[in-house]
Design a protein around this nucleic acid. Sequence first.
RNA 1: GCGCCCGUAGCUCAGCAGGAUAGAGCACCAGAUUCCUAAUCUGGGGGCCAUGGGUUCGAAUCCCGUCGGGCGCACCA
Length: 580
Amino acid sequence: MTETTTLHAAFAGHVNAALDALEQAGTLPTVPRGAVAVEPPRDPSHGDLATNAAMVLAKPAGTNPRALAEAIAGELRKVPGVTAVEIAGPGFLNLRLDPALWVQEIRAIAALGGDYGRSALGAGQVVNVEYVSANPTGPMHMGHCRGAVVGDALASLLEFAGHKVIREYYVNDAGGQVDVLARSVHLRYREALGEDVGEVPEGLYPGDYLVPVGQALAAEFGDKYARAPDSEWLALFRTRAVAAMLNMIKADLALLGIHHDLFSSEAELQAAGKPEEAEAWLRAHDLVYDGELEAPKGKTPEDWEPVELPLFRSTRFGDDQDRPIRKSDGSWTYFGADLAYHFQKAASADALVDIWGADHAGTVKRIKAAVAALTQGQGKEKPFEIKLVQMVQLLKGGQPFKMSKRSGNFVTLADVVEMVGKDVVRFTMLTRKPEAQMDFDFDKVVEASKDNPVFYVQYAHARIRSILRKAEAEGYAPSSDGIELLGEEELALVKLAAQFPRLVEAAAAAREPHRIAFYLYDLAGAFHGYWNLGNDKPEKRFIVAQDARLTGARLYLASQIGQLVRNGLALLGVEAVEEM
RNA sequence: GCGCCCGUAGCUCAGCAGGAUAGAGCACCAGAUUCCUAAUCUGGGGGCCAUGGGUUCGAAUCCCGUCGGGCGCACCA
């Protein structure tokens, strides 16, 4: 065997081979097997692995589950290492495996090291993951944090599952907000020149973070633009301000260990005429027309008046109303530029994933519609998913914490990372499924107590490193020589470890990195439980005096569990610490 | 009014492409420390999986209605 095959992958293959054999023998007609699963049963007394193949295939095959189960069982009994195959319940096939087979899985972890769990599932397909994409008008705040962490972990997970991943950030540097930014910076520029500007007027960004930007411009240009009309400085100040904000955002993201491959500028996209190209194509296919915008649903504002605008026919794709791609002054709406942007992304990827905040949920339908229309027109529709991460409610001592970029009085990501650390922030954001709302209580998280699952997991790794150090000092070394000496308790740990590869695939397919975090928590729990056996029973400790073979085998197991914890934490971007 | 997300133990949440008796942490109760890190572990009580229907061999999981919470609803981004 030149390639190391993990145990679950091997048995998925064995079940498949058994079905092949039955097809060839004419026992089973050729039917799709998509729903066939091979997984450990919830109840360990049911065996080591179970498959639902007979139940799932009975109906399409026109036979009954028990009869089919008998036939499959016959094939599976031939597989080396299978000690028993039982048919249970409505037609489950429960397999019991030779413990030696499980023990081999430890060697697989050792052989593959950091690659244990890596999958070819993605088959090299290029997936573009766009995440964060916060407006470049200020530093990152906690509202951006969840999407940033989830997107980054998802990107790592997809990579590990065999995709080529592009980590992309879309820079909205073309709209009205960046003009406001430029004017705010101009104010700070005049302030830096000695002018008393007083309070920052309503409608401009008041945050102190713009002060150094104004100072830099004052140092570079003197009072050249202090009294000049904005036509002379607006574009320049906008460019400078956006660049400064982007640098700040990149520094903030770096604190979380996040680095994008690509920053795409909306302004450059527009300068290159991409939205015009998209519009022309959509008009040619009757997907954009000049029409009257409907009044908003619900409460209609007093100043509502009908206008004619170029509209995209998103209602054809299930949206509530057609959406404008240009404003009445002819400039692009956010949507108009965004559809061109997504079209551009689709050209260099096999699939697209966007991570958005839930406050943008209302625009999902229109952009999905536009991407479907445009990529269909290009030949084949590109898979495009939008993962919405729900709001994070910031609490401090039970009191809600308000965040508002305009007030300039918000909780920055940098502050939080400084307070609690990157690992706590990242892990905490991943210990809840993204589509559920979340409370982030500072006092709780700052506590850094055992309430934080991240410590529980890191502690498991630290303990492993600790025992390996201690053993080395006492002259023991991990060794697979005595691996057959490992018993029930060790096997339970191995069985949990062996699930990692299929978990990676399931999590990647579902685009749900949080599953890795929960798995690591379980794994850490199993390890701590095993460790504590030694409290009552000295013979269950890792280091057993006078038994170098058993000690070596247990250290070998510990070492591989440590490797596994590192592999999982690496996907989440959390450090595996040596000691605590 | 409409769209999307959520509703599982007292609290915070898992539940793996419907699967066999619904899980964990916290809190509560009872225990464990001359012991490789007690930042830990062992045992116990606690559930009409919001609610009413439907789909099927089987539903916390899929479909429809209702109730409750969140987000959004012009040319903003």
